[in-house]
Amino acid sequence: MHPQNTGTALIVIKAGCTEVACMEDFSDLYQAGLALEQLMGSESRFTESFNPDRDADEREREILELIKQVLRPEKAPDELLEKCFALIENM
């Protein structure tokens, strides 16, 4: 692990406090997260993805669900089919 003097500091205390590792100045949080992974031997949230069940409260999850309904709908609006049909009919 090579500190890069950019200011992100990470202190890890391993389970049972038998080891303490102090790492400073990683290039970014991702690099620090990778280091954490290596030390803990498990996945850390730093390298995963946003998980509403873990990272958001109920209110935010509701809002996110509505945003998904708006941005990622399963079906096209009813009138779009009619518009496409009319478009072809008029060509």
Partner: peptide, 26 residues
């Protein structure tokens, strides 16, 4: 926000696709 919270892409993928650091994504 759309790529991570809506489309569920990983931080790493979003960082690579947008050519930014993961810390910036988060």
């Amino acid at each position: 926000f759309i790529e991570t919270a809506v489309d569920g892409k990983s931080y790493k993928q979003v960082a690579e696709e947008n050519n930014i650091k993961i810390g910036t994504v988060m």
